[in-house]
Amino acid sequence: MHVFLQTLLDGLMLGGLYALAASGFSLIFGVMGILNLAHGAFLVLGAYVGLQISQSLSIEPILTLPAVVVVLFAAGALFQRYLVQLTVDRGGLVASLLVTFGVSLIIHDLLAHFYGPGSRTIVSSYAYSRIEFGGLVIGLSRLVPLVVSIVLILALHFMLARSRLGREMRAASQQIVAARLCGINVRRVFALTFGIASAYAGVAGVLVGTVLPFSPNSETYWTISAFVVVVLGGAKSPAGTLLGGLLLGILNTMTAQFISPLFTSTVMFLVLVLMLLVRPQGILGHAAGATR
């Protein structure tokens, strides 16, 4: 029982990371219908930016977040404005799948060229601190990401639900033409959506870096896990992303604990395939045209 509870707790904390890593992916998919296959590459890029800044200024990794947000926001917004938009205009959504995949490869090779293909980690000052609670152990390096994730996902939720930009995003996701007629600058909204989503990916990258090793090759893993989270929780709502992320985290630690650490990805994909076949709209969300 104790092992089970500890595994559950570890899963929840890992799940916070999955949720944050997927929230930007889910936002782009929800607002623009684009599956951004470069999302994982942006996440890993964020991790490297955070690593670079915290090493060269020798400051606490978590203090690099504002800078990472700025860099990734700019990268994401420019990427959307000058590449993704063009692609969607010319070739539709499948073309955007290919172009974002191509960009992820470019980012991968550039990172591997400048930082080498090996695994890196970001070491925080609290990496080895832990809280013990009724026999359960909570590592601070895992608790901090969970808390940051929940705060940021709530912020995203309120932004979408309450703010003017959020309303504009929801309007643009429903009907681009109608949104334009209401005086919404849809191009600007889309660029901002990509910027915010990439900034979230960057923050997730830094937090991932403090918990797990990362390398240029990790980008595929994070793109796919974001997709799994979106499928589990359903697109279009930060609450769904949070739920999907936490479920994926629990699934992963449970598999590692009770089946074998070798099969976490396999189980993740089996669940993905099953979910797509049985309930493609996710546990919470609406059908997104996945099947007939």
Binding site: L83, L98, V99, F101, G102, V103, S104, L105, I106, H108, D109, L110
Partner: peptide, 8 residues
Amino acid sequence: ATTGALIV
């Protein structure tokens, strides 16, 4: 990266 750029 070359392949990726070609796709784009």
